[in-house]
């Protein structure tokens, strides 16, 4: 599933990131890449999502969230 379909409050693991090269590299530099654990904190109806990765909160726009494929990892 993509990050858009996740439930807030749960933890997921990134499987693959489908993004244009520039965004992909940006995410990687921030430590968001395959295998990274992601906690979903909040989401708006528009799809913008707040996640927590390696102790840092990030706000992601809808397109970015849609391009991140994740798999369930467990609860908080």
């Amino acid at each position: 599933m993509t990050l858009l379909e996740t439930k807030t409050g749960n933890i997921y693991q990134v499987q693959i990131i489908r993004q244009e090269e520039k965004v992909l590299r940006r995410l990687e530099a921030l430590g968001i890449l395959e295998g990274t654990k992601v906690e979903v904190l909040n989401r708006k109806k528009t799809g913008a999502t707040i996640i927590k990765v390696r102790g840092t909160r990030w706000a992601l726009g809808e397109d970015i969230a849609r391009g991140i494929e994740v798999e369930g990892y467990g609860h908080e």
Binding site: I50, W58, A59, D63
Partner: peptide, 10 residues
Amino acid sequence: HNHNLLIELP
């Protein structure tokens, strides 16, 4: 349209 937000929330 543009939904490429990426910003740290301190």
